[in-house]
Design a protein around this nucleic acid. Structure first.
Lengths: 343, 343
DNA sequence: TATTCTACCGTAAGCGCTTACGTAAGCGCT
DNA sequence: AGCGCTTACGTAAGCGCTTACGGTAGAATA
């Protein structure tokens, strides 16, 4: 590839500026030990010539890489896309390039991608979606990550508690509390919960927040229906049908994510039950759809882009002795799917 | 950073395998001139030791980079996210790393990002969202890209015609034809078009496809209302109000993207006009929302992920003398928002 | 057997950059 | 003037890899 040879090198800039290559390097990188006027001169020449340093050479010589990796399941998924958006924004601001890998939920592929990131000598790996935090990650991949950390790389995890690595996660507990308080404030007492898998910390946290709010109002979640199906639209449908059938006195359904809430809405519409007049529905996540549904969905917005930014900023700090956890805020987005109970 | 020193190098593998570093390199890269058994031995050792070649050193020495760049406006936008998904999928399959840059629609930032990609010696730059193809790109950025191409880099564009570079784009003409044929087949004759900016090739193409379909049915688009407002939800609302007011005999509204269609639906709902019983509505793009609206939206799905894949595969081929164009297919997704006209 | 060829492998020269080290000049001090 | 010290800059040694190039063995040819 002649495409390498044709671009100008540091030595071209140095010659043009009448200094040595070392001085040019120092001037451009802002290192100490170069007089002010020479620094200016070199930078001016570099700008005039349109010189851009070769990242590979720089990284090879200096050891400091200027890129970070982001691991997601599927970048097309809005959840991950929004995380990526935050990571990219901060990355660009910091002059870092971001390499996004999506695994397609395939453990083999995941291992390959992690190896590729390490081969690229990324400074940090941010894990947003991965078997690492769920199940099924290759043992080899875990070892690879461990070795990566041992050799100075940083690993941070988004959205899950995870032992051994710094993590940022949405404050699901507070979110669960907020939306439950919203329902209580409207006057609801018989609230049903459409849960996904109770094993997920996400679900557990949201429910525990709800329990707190209920407790503060003198109620107990133990006396309310919690229907655990699947964290999907279909799961929402099944849960809703069961709730309507078994607990006809409920006045509000709190789905633990928006997908389930959408399923709930479709069942209610199909059965001719008015929302929110007869039953209120609230969700979790504020997916883009939520606003456009009819009725528009009351939900809890979690700032995934902000989580992405925080994960990166955490990754850029030196590691701490014990893993850090950071929870970010949330916003209750009250829309048309919730209202006061009829009676 | 000791993190560099601690990882094992090619020479470690070579020693362990009892060969020279050159032979080890050739064995791993699959170059000719190495006996079969030595190749196997080296690879086995590399695998056992978990050796991963340093991409920076490889690229610096060999000249051949293993990464490509993708330029988007905003990765959080599903349109770009889906494109990215396709690029990432094929990239992973080809062993390429993909550096995604999002510009936030800021021309200065865009220039910075392009420079960063070039500094990373990417093999190709895929432009999905950029002032390059719209307006407002920095002149410096265009020059940078031109120099990049001149020095052997490849540039491909997604979603726009663009002179001088290979491009892949959805077949908007065929899409416009399909959805119009669908409406005609249902029996509609008075169809109104809610357009965005007629200056966009996207809009022009979709309309020209519609005109073809109408022509084949013995109708002329010149006699039908084409309301040109803005390519937004709000634009869809305004267009719909105008259509209802000025052309009360229309039985179907074809919005030239889904955002406008969503706006149309909300106006119709507000005015108590039943869809599709009184008026049919169709859109374009098949955004994720489309399926969840009520009524669910008939629309044309454009395979953006596939476009991303094609853009990459085009970028990996040697450049052709004249720029290539590739149009991909589309799928008409007929849902509940369209039906036969009442009368 | 001597010779040419081929296939294989090792030696070493970079790729473009950073940075330890060396050197020279300027400063204040005795 | 001579000393040490600081500051500013140049020289050169790599970073880990690829790849000319050269050398050595065995096969093939005479």
């Amino acid at each position: 590839m002649d495409h390498q040879r044709s671009r100008l090198r540091l030595i071209d800039v140095a010659k043009e500026a009448g200094v040595s290559i070392a001085t040019a390097s120092r001037a451009l990188s802002g290192a100490a030990g170069v007089s002010e006027d020479i620094t200016q001169r070199v930078r001016a020449v570099a700008g005039k010539l349109g010189y851009v340093a070769n990242v590979h050479a720089r990284s090879l010589a200096g050891g400091a890489s200027s890129s970070v990796g982001l691991l997601v399941h599927e970048i097309g998924d809005p959840y991950f896309a929004e995380i990526a958006s935050g990571v990219l924004r901060l990355g660009a601001q910091q002059g870092l390039t971001v390499q996004i890998c999506h695994t397609g939920r395939d453990p083999d592929n995941e291992l390959t991608q992690i190896r590729a990131l390490i081969a690229n000598r990324v400074r940090a790996i941010i894990i947003a979606g991965s078997g690492f935090v769920d199940a099924g990650m290759q043992v080899a991949a875990k070892e690879e990550l461990r070795a990566f950390e041992a050799s100075g790389g940083r690993v941070t995890v988004i959205g899950r508690h995870h032992l051994g690595a710094d993590a940022v996660l949405p404050d699901n507990v507070a979110g669960g509390r907020s939306v439950t308080e919203h329902l209580l404030a409207l006057g609801h007492r018989r609230i049903a919960f459409a849960a996904g898998s109770l094993a997920l910390t996400t679900v557990a946290d949201r429910l525990s927040g709800a329990a707190e709010a209920l407790g503060a109002a003198g109620l107990s979640i133990a006396e309310l229906p919690v229907v655990d199906v699947a964290f999907t639209r279909e799961g929402g449908k099944v849960a809703t049908e069961r709730i309507l059938h078994e607990f006809p006195d409920v006045t509000a359904i709190l789905a633990l994510n928006d997908d389930m809430a959408i399923g709930a809405l479709s069942v209610l519409r199909a059965q001719g039950i008015a929302v929110p007049e007869e039953i209120s529905v609230a969700g979790f996540d504020d997916v883009a759809v939520a606003e456009d549904l009819s009725p528009s969905l009351t939900t809890v917005r979690l700032p995934m882009a902000e989580l992405g930014e925080r994960a990166l900023s955490l990754a850029l700090k030196p590691p701490s002795a014990r893993p850090r956890r950071r929870a970010t805020g949330h916003v209750l987005v009250a829309r048309d799917s919730t209202g006061p109970p009829r009676c």
